[in-house]
Design a protein around this nucleic acid. Structure first.
Lengths: 209, 209
DNA sequence: ACCGCTACCAAACGGCCGTTAGACGATGAT
DNA sequence: ATCATCGTCTAACGGCCGTTTGGTAGCGGT
C-alpha cells in the first residue's frame, strides 16, 4: 500500500468540471435518458451514472428531478417556436408561408429527434402549471398555423367552409406524428418528408379553383 | 362492543365479487389510472384503492403490473383494427373506402378516448417483444391505410408521384393526433372532426383531374 | 501561508414500489 | 355436517426512489 491508505484510494472516476460545462452535459444526458426510458421510469441514478457522479451531487445543479424535465422541454419548445415564427414572417402569400412553416417544423423535428420526442411525449408528466408555462397561455405553436390558415382563407386561398382551428390541428397532427416513425438514415430523408407532408397538407386545405 | 371484538370489527369495505365481474372492473379502473397518471407513475396501490381492495389482492388476477397494461392496450388495438378493417372491406372505390376508414378510425378514437390514449401513449412502456405482439409483425393498422392508398393510386385516383407509405403516415398522424386535443362536449363533435379530417386527408392525396 | 469558494463525495433519510406467502371467512356442492 | 374452493386480507420482503445533510479536496486570490 502506498496510498495514504483506505479512504483515499477510493477516489472514484469523478472528473471535476466548471459549472457551465457540466450543466450542458447534464441537460444532454438527461434528455437522452428521458428519451430512452421515459421520464417516470428514468432515475437520477441513471443520469448520475452516465455523468460519472453520484445522484446526490446532481442537487448542486438542480432543485428537483422535475426541473430537468422542464428545462429540457422548454428549451426545445422555444427553439422550435422560433423556427416556425421566423418562417411565418417571410414574404409571400399565406399559403406559401404555411408551406415554409411546415417544412421548417418537420425538419427541425427530424434534426432534433431526441429532444422533440421528450417534449411531445413527456409534456404530460409536467404538472399543469409548468405545462402551460412552457406552451404559453394559448398554444403558441398552434396559433402560428391557425393564423396563417385563417389569413389564407380570407384571401380565398383556403376553402371557405373549413374551420381554421381544425385545419391547424390536422396539419400539426401529421407533422408532429413524425417523431414516432422518422429514423435518421432510414427510408426517407428529413427534407423529403418535410416537402411531401407540406404538399399534402396544403392540397388538403386549398380552395379548388 | 357487540362485535366479537378487535380484529373482526375491522372488516374493511371490500366487497366480494365473482371473478369475471371483478376482472372487468380491474381493467376498467387500470385503464383510467394509466390514463390519468401514466403507466410508470401509476401504482398498483392506486388501482387497488379504487377497487376497494389491497394491492396484494390484485395478484389473484394478474401475474404482474405489465400484464394490466398489455391487456388494456391489446384490447383497444384489436377493437380499433376491427373497425378500420371492416370499413376497408365495404364496397366502393378505394378512395371512398379510405374516407370510410378514416371516419371510423377517428370516431372510434373519440368514443374510446381513454383507452386510445393509453394505447398511443403507453405503448412505449411495453418491452419491445410485447409491443410487436400487439401491433402485429408489420404494423397492421398502417397497412390498412397504405394498401388502400396504393390501390387508389393504381386506379389513378391518387397522385402518381406520392409514396403510399408516406401518405399513410401523414393520414395516420392527423387522425391519431386527435387523442391529444379532442374533448367530449367540446368545440367539435366526433362526427364533425372525423368528416373534416377525412376530407382534408383525401384532398391532400387525390390526383387533380 | 492562509482563506474561501467551487464542485463534488459519503452516507443516510423516510417512503413507496412490485411482489410473495400464508391465513381465513364466506359460499356452494356433496 | 363436511369440505373444497374462491376471493380477499394480513403482513411482510428487498429494493430503489428522490432528497437532504455535512463534509472535503483542490484551486485562485490575497
Amino acid at each position: 500500500m502506498r496510498q495514504p491508505a483506505g479512504r483515499s484510494a477510493r477516489r472514484s472516476g469523478g472528473e471535476r468540471k466548471p459549472r457551465e460545462e457540466r450543466w450542458a452535459e447534464l441537460i444532454e444526458v438527461a434528455t437522452r435518458v428521458f428519451y430512452e426510458k421515459g421520464y417516470d421510469a428514468a432515475s437520477l441514478q441513471d443520469i448520475a451514472d452516465r455523468l460519472g457522479m453520484l445522484k446526490g451531487s446532481l442537487y448542486y445543479y438542480i432543485q428537483s428531478k422535475e426541473d430537468l424535465l422542464f428545462d429540457v422541454i422548454s428549451a426545445v419548445h422555444k427553439e422550435g417556436l422560433a423556427v416556425v415564427r421566423a418562417r411565418a414572417g417571410t414574404p409571400g402569400d399565406p399559403l406559401q408561408r404555411l408551406r415554409n412553416v411546415i417544412v421548417g417544423h418537420v425538419e427541425h423535428t427530424c434534426q432534433n429527434l431526441v429532444q422533440t420526442t421528450v417534449f411531445l411525449h413527456e409534456l404530460s408528466a409536467l404538472p399543469p402549471e409548468r405545462r402551460t408555462e412552457v406552451l404559453g397561455n394559448e398554444h403558441a405553436y398552434q396559433g402560428v398555423f391557425r393564423d396563417l390558415i385563417e389569413l389564407a382563407q380570407k384571401e380565398g386561398l383556403v376553402r371557405a367552409d373549413l374551420d381554421p382551428r381544425l385545419a391547424a390541428l390536422s396539419v400539426l397532427g401529421s407533422t408532429n406524428w413524425v417523431y414516432r416513425w422518422f429514423r435518421p438514415g432510414g427510408e426517407f430523408t428529413a427534407e423529403q418528408i418535410a416537402a411531401e407532408l407540406a404538399e399534402m397538407a396544403i392540397r388538403g386545405i386549398a380552395s379548388t379553383e
